[in-house]
Design a protein around this nucleic acid. Structure first.
Length: 421
DNA sequence: TCTGGGGTCCTAGGACCC
DNA sequence: TCTGGGGTCCTAGGACCC
């Protein structure tokens, strides 16, 4: 059975274009939280020289000059379109592994003539027709090969978005076209080492002596090399694994140096993290909070603190008490803090909870559980923060900047676009 | 004035056990 | 005089992913 990787091109930008086709012919960029830096751009913006990761404030002039459309990231919209994307793929394959918001690995059987091109073209058409998302499909014998094939599908125009490495006559030729930095699993550090050791492309990586690779990359390097040779050794998991930790954090609109503000931020993130836990049907055994100054200031400061809970919980009030209790441990008045967050750790599924020896409470049916459910339902029905904790503060001067956010066109009735005949 | 957020996996080294 | 060897668990840090 072959493995394919279906991946949406410039996903966030494509989502923005799909709800507002009027911007499709213009350069478009999407900014990270706090309108910090570029995290997605459409082909036109790419062509005009906007690159990923650039801070917005540095390129604002350039963007004005090329008359680019700018959007703040709208994750609610992207998550909803992603779900639709995945369900179309699921209906057109044998097994699906959702790999990220815009990518899925899938398994498909090869037809008698081994040719999956017709299937791939059809899938590409359906996705475009229903969601206006252009996708690339790469096919190989395993995940690493599918990744390589997907890269080739995107970068070589003659492949028009689809490439099958499994049936390529000259696999070596194609592996040679893939720069070492573009190989899945090779990050900047390892790429640097590779270049220094004369390994410049995927073919050379496949063919270097295994012992040399193992010494530097460990087992991960071995797995990658095996896959480049055509064996499968990276697990395919169609069942989403339960999360081991859940983190909510952000950079602040402006730096803070008073503990009250830090408490409000920690409270806000803890509440969001608790909601996430309840949605995931998980409970946290320990809570870590952290904060730091900017990387770009001379006096760097970073601190975290952790509290273990007697009983794992997803009750906002319990987690809030734990997190706020730690705040003074990470605060330092001499530093301007620019980032803070909460990590829920050692997560347990609701079914694998153990009661505390001295506790009389039972899970799920408790009053506390009902209260949390009621709050979640109210916020779902009437909008986020209809019911919220006073610990979050009222003014929120530090709140995330989102000056260019688009509508919730697929999840909120009042935001559905109106088409005039 | 401004520089993302949310994850996972692996390894090395220390502490501890018998 | 003499200070083992094999194993597990935990943690911090590094590297990677999108």
């Amino acid at each position: 059975m072959a493995t394919a990787l279906v991946d949406s091109n410039n996903f966030y930008a494509a989502c923005e274009q799909s709800i507002d086709p009027s911007i499709a012919n213009r350069p478009l960029i999407v900014l990270s939280n706090n309108d910090g830096c570029v995290i997605a751009r459409n082909a036109k913006a790419k062509y005009l020289g906007v690159s990923m990761g650039q801070p917005y404030f540095k390129i604002r002039r350039q963007l004005e000059k090329i008359e680019a459309e700018v959007r703040s990231s709208n994750y609610t919209l992207y998550a909803d379109i992603s779900q639709r994307f995945m369900s179309i793929i699921e209906a057109n394959c044998e097994e699906l592994e959702v790999y990220s918001i815009d990518e899925a690995f899938i398994k498909v059987s090869r037809t008698s003539d081994h040719n999956l091109m017709i299937w791939a073209r059809r899938l590409r058409e359906i996705i475009y027709q229903r969601l206006s998302l252009p996708v690339a499909i790469g096919i190989g014998e395993n995940k690493s090969q599918a990744k390589i094939a997907n890269h080739l599908a995107k970068t070589m125009p003659s492949h028009s978005g689809i490439f099958d490495l499994g049936i390529a006559n000259d696999q070596d030729y194609f592996l040679k076209q893939v720069e070492i930095e573009d190989v899945w699993g090779i990050g900047p550090k390892l790429a640097y080492w590779c270049r220094a050791n004369g390994i410049h492309n995927a073919l050379q990586l496949r063919d270097i002596p295994s012992n040399k690779l193992k010494k530097k990359f460990g087992v991960k390097g071995m797995r990658l090399q095996y896959e480049l040779k055509g064996h499968s050794c990276i697990k395919f998991s169609s069942q989403a694994m339960p999360k081991k930790e859940t983190c909510v954090s952000n950079s602040l609109n402006k730096p803070i140096n008073n503990i009250e503000n830090l408490r409000e931020i920690i409270a806000t993130h803890t509440i969001r993290a608790s909601e996430k836990l309840r949605k995931q049907k998980q409970n946290a055994t320990s809570v870590t909070i952290f904060t730091r100054t900017s990387f770009y200031t001379p006096n760097f400061y970073s601190q975290s603190a952790t509290k273990r809970l007697d009983i794992p919980s997803n009750d906002t009030r319990i987690l809030l008490a734990a997190a706020l209790g730690l705040t003074k441990e990470i605060f330092h008045p001499n530093y301007l803090l620019i980032k803070a967050g909460v990590i829920m750790q050692e997560l347990l599924g609701a079914d694998s909870l153990q009661l505390h020896l001295l506790s009389r409470k039972s899970f799920g049916t408790s009053k506390e559980g009902c209260l949390m459910k009621a709050i979640d339902n109210l916020n779902k029905r009437y909008g986020q923060d209809t019911v919220y904790w006073a610990a979050c503060g009222m003014k929120k001067k530090w709140e995330v900047r989102r000056r260019h956010v688009s509508a919730l066109a697929t999840t909120r009735l009042s935001d559905v676009p109106i088409v005039q005949a």
